[in-house]
């Protein structure tokens, strides 16, 4: 049970760290999204301006012509992965496929240069857009993952750890009670033993005293019988004749 609590605490601290790392990344991404969105506004403005140039140069609307001649994408994206604390974040990468050009005929009559420039501008704009899109994807995924991780952190912090602690507390209380019972029992036994020994002691003492008393009596009677070996009070000695 203690091991379980320890495991829960370790897991909690690890998850907390993971969530912090993710949040850090998340904040960075949101900041970059904010910047990128503003940048996109500017880039798209420039791009629209260059499209207006094209319209002016070609002298008429080329929209339909372009829409009809679009066949195969030259500008494509591929996804690669980025790993942030075990979370796979996809990132888009744009690339140009070689060899196909749907708009070879566009601007053939006039404004070919403008069309070319416009294409370049828009290609740059789309690159910025792709970058923004990958940021946004990362944002969405990170958002999701952070929610899940935070939920887990909270579950461990507020449910699993208290529950385990309660169990441990209960077990400890039970053990303490058993301990106290045992102690009390021992104390009782000790008391009983003490009482017993005291009784025994008393008995022995009594017996010894009785013994001693009888001894003394015996001695006293003996002394009376023999009498003190007093020199002065000696019995008549034999006369000493010189």
């Amino acid at each position: 049970m203690k091991a379980k609590l320890k495991g829960a605490e370790t897991g909690h601290s690890l998850l907390k760290r993971k969530s912090e790392a993710l949040t850090k990344r998340f904040r960075e991404i949101t900041r970059r999204i904010d910047e990128a969105k503003r940048k996109m506004g500017r880039v798209m403005q420039i791009a629209s301006l260059s499209l207006a140039e094209v319209t002016y140069a070609v002298g008429g609307n080329i929209g339909y012509q372009i829409q009809e001649s679009a066949k195969s994408a030259r500008f494509r994206i591929r996804a690669k992965q980025d790993n942030v604390s075990g979370v796979l974040l996809p990132a888009f990468e744009s690339y140009l496929t070689e060899g196909n050009n749907d708009f070879a005929m566009t601007g053939l009559g006039k404004g070919g240069q403008q069309v070319q420039r416009c294409r370049e501008t828009y290609a740059r704009a789309v690159e910025a857009l792709v970058e923004l899109a990958s940021l946004q994807t990362a944002f969405v995924i990170l958002d999701e993952v952070i929610k899940v991780v935070n939920r887990r952190v909270n579950a461990i912090e507020h449910v699993i750890i208290p529950r385990t602690e309660n169990t441990i507390k209960y077990i400890n209380a039970e053990l303490d009670e058993l301990d106290r019972e045992e102690f009390y029992r021992l104390k009782k036994v000790a008391n009983k033993k003490q009482r017993d020994t005291a009784e025994q002691d008393a008995e022995i003492k009594k017996r010894r005293e009785a013994h001693e008393a009888s001894d003394r009596e015996k001695q006293a009677s003996e002394a009376q019988e023999t009498g003190p070996a007093d020199i002065l009070a000696a019995e008549e000695d034999e006369d000493v004749i010189f």
Binding site: A47, S48, L51, V54, N61, I62, G63, I66, Q67, A70, K71, S72, A73, R74, F75, R76, I77, R78, A79, Q81, L88, P90, L96, D102, F103, T106, V115, C118, R119, Y122, A123, A125, V126, L129, V130
Partner: peptide
Amino acid sequence: QADYKDRQFLAVIGDEDSVTGLLLAGIGHV
């Protein structure tokens, strides 16, 4: 991984000018 490995196109819903510009950049695909 397979979910986004083969996603290689962009799609546009926009007004005529935006679509024209983005198609000029070469994202159009039929």
